[in-house]
Structure formats: C-alpha cells, structure tokens
Design a protein around this nucleic acid. Sequence first.
DNA 1: TTGTATGCGTTATCAA
DNA 2: TTGATAACGCATACAA
Lengths: 326, 326
Amino acid sequence: MGTKRPPSLDIAAMTGVSHTTVSRALNDKVDLSARRVRSKKIHTLAVLISEDLDQTDNPINPFFLPLIGSILKYAGQKGYEVLVSLQQQSDDWGTDYGFSRRADGIIFLGCKDYESYTHKFEYLNAVGDPWVVWGVDRPDCAKLCIGSDNEGGAYDAVRHLVGLGRTRIAYLGKSAPEHPEFKERYEGYCRALTEAGLPVEDALHGDVFLEREEAVAAVDSMLDDGIRFDAVFCATDLLAMGAMQQLIRRGLRVPEDVSVMGFDDLWVCSSLSPSLSTVRQDTGAAARALIDGLSCLIENEPVHLTRMPTQLVIRESCGGLNIRRH
Amino acid sequence: MGTKRPPSLDIAAMTGVSHTTVSRALNDKVDLSARRVRSKKIHTLAVLISEDLDQTDNPINPFFLPLIGSILKYAGQKGYEVLVSLQQQSDDWGTDYGFSRRADGIIFLGCKDYESYTHKFEYLNAVGDPWVVWGVDRPDCAKLCIGSDNEGGAYDAVRHLVGLGRTRIAYLGKSAPEHPEFKERYEGYCRALTEAGLPVEDALHGDVFLEREEAVAAVDSMLDDGIRFDAVFCATDLLAMGAMQQLIRRGLRVPEDVSVMGFDDLWVCSSLSPSLSTVRQDTGAAARALIDGLSCLIENEPVHLTRMPTQLVIRESCGGLNIRRH
DNA sequence: TTGTATGCGTTATCAA
DNA sequence: TTGATAACGCATACAA
C-alpha cells in the first residue's frame, strides 16, 4: 500500500512528475547529508586547534585568531564549509574524535613542540584524510607544512635594532630544535648579531616559551642580576607585551632606555603605549596557502612547501631615528 | 549478480553475520553523512558571525573571540560539531548561504545595530532552523536572545569611579535605542551619576561606535575643546584602549589625571600599561547559556531569556585607593 | 541477541 | 529534457 509514501514521492505524485525531477527542481534546498552519502564529497574543511595555553579566558593562541578568521573567509570563498574543533593537549583523539568522513581535509594548528604532536600526527595519518599544518616542515610530517620565514623576519628585526645603535640585544624565546619556529627566529637573531660583529651572549637569552608571565619573570631576572641590555627581541608579541610592561613597571623607559621588538603583529600592537614594533606574519596569505595546499592534497595534485615572507613593522617601542607613529 | 556487493555485505558474508550487525560492530567508523540522512539529526551547530569591522587584519570583534572559543569548547563537550561562518555585513544571505539541513541550530553573533539585521533575522526565521542571538532581546527577534547585564555592569563601574572621588566622568559609546546593549550601558552610567548627585552632561558624552580610532578622535576633541574630565568610562575595552593611548600621548597621566574604565575584559586588559580596569563579561557562562538555550529550542523545550551577571575588575587604570595590580 | 526488509533524499545510469 | 530504477550506508521496525 502506498498510503505512507515518502514526502518527496508524495510531491512527485501530487505534481505528476517523477521524484527524481522533484529532487532536481528543489536543488536549492537539498539535504546536504543525503547529497554527501551519494556524492562522496563533503565540501568541508576541519580546523583542528590543539590548545596549550592554560588561561581559561584566553583559550586560543592570539596569533591563531586572525589566521582562523582568514581561513574562514577564504574557505568560504572557495565554497568550503569550515568545521572548527578545539582540542586539549591532553585529549585522547583516537577515542573521542572520529574524523572519518566529516571533512575532506584537516588544517592543524598548534604551538607545542613537535614531539608532543607525534602521536597526533600519526593519528591524522592513520585516518587517511589529507591534512596540512602551520609551522615548520619536519621529515615525519608526511603531508604539507606551511610557515613564515622565521629566520629572515627575525634577522630583519634585529638588524633594525643594531641600526638604531643598540649593542646589547636580549632574546626572549625558545631556541631548541623541538620548537623549530622559535629556533629559526633565534638563528635570525644570531645571524644579525654576528653580521654586526656583536657577540651572542647566553646571559642575554631568556629561555621562555609562550606565556606572557614568563617574559615578565625573565625581565625581572635579568634586571635583578644586573645584566645590562638596551634592546629586547621577543619570539612573539605576547612575550614582548609582558617584557615591555615589566620594563615600564620597573621604571625603565621604552624606547629611550630599552627598545622592544615582537613577532606576529597582533592587532593590539598598535594600541599599546608605546605601540609595539614587530615582525608581521601575513595571516591572509598563510590562510590561502594552507587552503590551496589542502585543496591540492584533496584533489591528489602536487603540492609545494611554502614559506610566507614577513614584514618589519616599526612603531614607537623601537626608538631611534626611524620612529613612525601608527 | 552479487559480485560487486557493498563492503558491509561482503564482511557479512565472510563472517557469517548480517550487514546490520557488521554495521553495529564497526560503529566506530560509520559514515556520518549516511547516518544523518536516516536519523535526521545533524548534531551540528552553526556559528554565524556578521562582521562589521573593516580592518582586514582584525576580521572579528575581539570580544567575540573568547566567546567563540568557549562555544567551541562547550559545544564539543555536549557532542556538537561546530560550523563557523564569517558573513560580511553586505553579503546577500538568501542566495549565497543555504543553511537548510546543515546544522540543527544557529548561533548568531553581530555587533551592528539591530535595524541592519532585520532582514537577516527574517531570513533566519524563514529558514526555520532554531537560532539564538547574543545581545538584547527585541520583540521581533522571535527565538531567544542572551546577553549580559549591561546596565548593572556599567552602574557598578561608574559607581566605583565616583567612589574614587571622580566627579567629571565622560562616557564614550552609543546611547541610542538602535544599539540596545550600549544604550543599557549608558543608562547604567546615568543612574550611577544621578544617584551620586552628579549631572549628566552632553559635553562629556562622545557618541562613538566600535572602532578604536573613534575613541582617539573623541579624546582629542574633548581635550581640544577644553572640556574638563577626570575619568572616562567606555562602552567597550577597544574604545578604552584608544582613549587611554591618546590620553597618554597627549601628556596626561593615567590614572593620576584621568581614570579609565572599559567594558568586556579582553585578554589584553591586564597586559596594557597601565593595565585596564573593566567590566568583565563571562564568556564561558554566555557560551553555555547560548548552547543550552539552543538545545532547548532544538528539542522544542521551553526557554527563558537570560542575563549574565558581570563582574567589576579593578586594575591600574583607575587609580584611587583601591588599586590592585594584576 | 541476530537477521531481514524497507526507507532516508540524493546522485548516476540508462531509456524514452 | 524527463522518467524510471539502482545504489550510497545507515536506521528502524519487526521477525526469528
């Protein structure tokens, strides 16, 4: 008995056309899930954010925010939906996250050292979906890595400080190979110093990671130990903000006594007092490179590793003759 | 001929059980799209961000960022996937965005005045999916609105300034009914002044909207016009940052000459020099209220409008006896 | 507990 | 162009 026929067949009967035609005609309000069952295309990207910062009120690394914004924008232009997922560092992905057939590809964003991500990379590879990661390419990261020219950006920044006449330039940030991005920035710092005939001193290196408070403590420590310095180059803006704030609290003048330089160009940099000089990462270009690369992987087309150029942004915190106000 | 049977039937034949059982057994790696076709449940929420700020490098209102982070976190805990979409103010939703059956419900985030959103609200209502909006409830916003106690928060802030001995307290922000959230904050400001026997002066009201630069200009304008004031209460932290920066650039001391108070408690507030006092909105609680409310709408359960309590956070920018350092 | 038949709304294929 | 039918992988209802 056909009294309880499906709606689409009902419409077909009522209008006198086949239900195939009904489906074709109503092609604006289609059921995406059904379409996906048949077509095997999800047209969805997943952005996977592996979170490290503990602060509950600041759950995402601030550098990622404009990057995510750009990803959303560009993915939308390319016709992708974007699924965003926040993963705690401690989460067991294998059990609580089945990526299978949820997205055509995955963009992985994380700040921790790559060792911590090894098993997550393995999981992503096991799932089989194509994925890309923001950062520095590593041998066992099979797919595609996209990152900034960290060494060049840091070199530009420190060379600028040298050009201002600074001779005792501290570096706040990681330098070990477990953190390739920061290691590259440290290498750029060293190259600029060496090129200027300045020594690389351990006493001027604060081995801090991501948290602003670490930079505060590092500044305190250097000042308490009587270590002289006339500039601080920080591996991230967040660290630079902590350093600059503590320098001011300790009675030093920025930039008169100490120049401060960051890395990232967070939106706050121009709103600080003094405004913060920094090395800008182009998040728009990064988002395009990530998505275009992922698209290639999805379509089985060849991909090429990409390094995004950086741009030096000089604001008040540098001092010297080149002060430009934004 | 059954040579090309579906995989599940193959396994069924090999293991001697039915393909239904196979399906049940392999319930870890199911095809979500297929499941959704049958079950009619998407288990997905869509976060729709209507963007207003023009800055390309700051595409999302900074207040929304922790809110979105909390939404991602809490939605994940409740078993929802989250689809995030950035919509330009100018985008024609009807044509370029078919929400039908992509999500069980929609969370709408936007900062513009409600008049601008009228046709978007109509579209959302027409789609039929349940949706909630962050902000202030309005008659024609049929579903559910969730917001902070703007009036109370502003009242607390201004009363604190009065308690510090400030008598000429400026307000930077909107006050017109088209911007209900800011109107409520203005009303809290007025109530605190009136209660303290202080007049509400038009000269002390800078009618600015969202952009930091507007606050910079408003401060310039008041100073240029010779208007005296010893405190500035701003409708958002972004405005407070602009105001504070410009006060400092114009040679005034914060908080000695002028106290500055914001609203939101962005993560940067504690990193500014001086650190910024503000009215904290609890984005975690807001995210929970939005998602729980949306869940109720999805399940056809009754919902209640909710106002989230705010919390006064005193930092260096206030001055007075109550200075606490964060 | 395990097996079977059928429907979900689409796409793909072939026939008219 | 349009119509009929099969298939996608799962869920539901019911039978064994």
